[in-house]
Design a protein around this nucleic acid. Structure first.
Lengths: 200, 200
DNA sequence: CGTTGTTTTGACCGTTTGGTCAAACCCAGA
DNA sequence: TCTGGGTTTGACCAAACGGTCAAAACAACG
């Protein structure tokens, strides 16, 4: 059917996804309207619906694209590497994602806040499996005395919390800090935090 | 005008605020409807609008009620107390708030995610002032060598992130942990984190 | 009981929403 | 030039939305 998407198709699909990411990440699914997305994409509403069959379809496409890369930083945590460096590397990669893809982080946050109606199954399978797998590795390091004896699950939660906070609560962080760029200070602080937590 | 609110008024206003908190904290302002709130409160929509003049009014009342107590845990941080105990006490109080008032935390998270349109001014004044004030205290402790030399602002952010995460991302945390109650483990872990970070 | 003020509701209104559709537009290739 | 596909849009629709209103139901007290 769809052989090669034309240049126009590629451009407009991208514009729609970009606009949808902007709107959905701010207002959530139900709080966003097709008119908003259409305007942000520079298209008329019927034209938007020519490229995506429904509001739901745009949202689903965005969530799918997000989940493709969302677990990559954790996936890269290597059980054969140096424990402290592996965990700190994971934390740094997560913080970089918050810096470079804050809208994606907020899209995810909105989905979770609303009870994860569309990705709950994935949380219970893919996500849980991945976390459990890495938790075993971390537990091994702790048992071997290579890092402090911390609960691996809560350690991973803390990395999520500390890094995503700078994307999800961006306006609050900037309101408190003033003009400064939050991420430089955050990087240094995160390093200190992780090193301290893991020190035996 | 309104002398003593009757028992019916008290009951219905409370029911509406409770229902509004449930709905708004899940779907955000724009994603919530009066019909949803009315049904959750066990009232008809016109009856609901008899007690609150508009959807906006319910939301505003909830935000105001929230902000009354939101900064209390930080306010209680005493510059004359023991540095480590004061900071850890603050973290524990914040975690307790996430455990006891998760909907309030999610209401706040939704507001921030949407760019804080209704409380941005407060973030730049009350919140910033309070944080700056406590940051000076913490900075003094750090300079005196009583705690590690950490950036006070990011230290406070980390406490927000670590504690609110358990309320805001509740479904994800539970999905990963399984049946366990997250907060017991979280409390122990948080203690370890804070003690490690602050150790000189 | 009757009266007075509070509470509740069915019916309704204008606007916004997600989505449809036929017609028009555009633009390459024959 | 014509043709045929891909693209765009104005007009439209039914449902859902926030909100109004007059009338009914109720409660309290003499």
């Amino acid at each position: 059917m769809t052989k090669t998407p034309t240049r126009i198709q590629q451009r407009n699909r991208m514009a729609i996804l970009d606009a949808g990411l902007m709107i959905f990440s701010q207002f959530g699914f139900r709080g966003s309207t097709l008119d908003q997305i259409a305007e942000a994409a520079g298209l008329s509403k019927p034209n938007l619906l020519y490229y995506f069959p429904s509001k739901e379809a745009i949202h689903t496409a965005l969530l799918e694209r997000l989940l493709e890369n969302w677990l990559d930083p954790l996936k890269a945590l290597d059980g054969n590497g140096d424990p402290v460096e592996e965990i700190m590397g994971y934390a740094r990669r997560k913080l970089a994602m918050s810096r470079d893809y804050p809208r994606e982080s907020r899209l995810f946050a909105n989905e979770i806040l609303q009870g994860a109606p569309r990705i709950k199954a994935i949380l219970h399978t893919d996500l849980k499996d991945m976390v459990d797998e890495k938790a075993v590795i971390i537990k091994g390091w702790a048992d071997a005395g290579l890092i402090a004896d911390v609960d691996p699950h809560h350690l991973i939660f803390s990395i999520w919390a500390l890094t995503q906070h700078y994307a999800d609560f961006d306006v609050q962080v900037r309101a408190v800090l003033g003009t400064d760029d939050p991420f430089s200070g955050a990087g240094q602080f995160l390093d200190h935090v992780m090193r301290s937590i893991l020190r035996v």
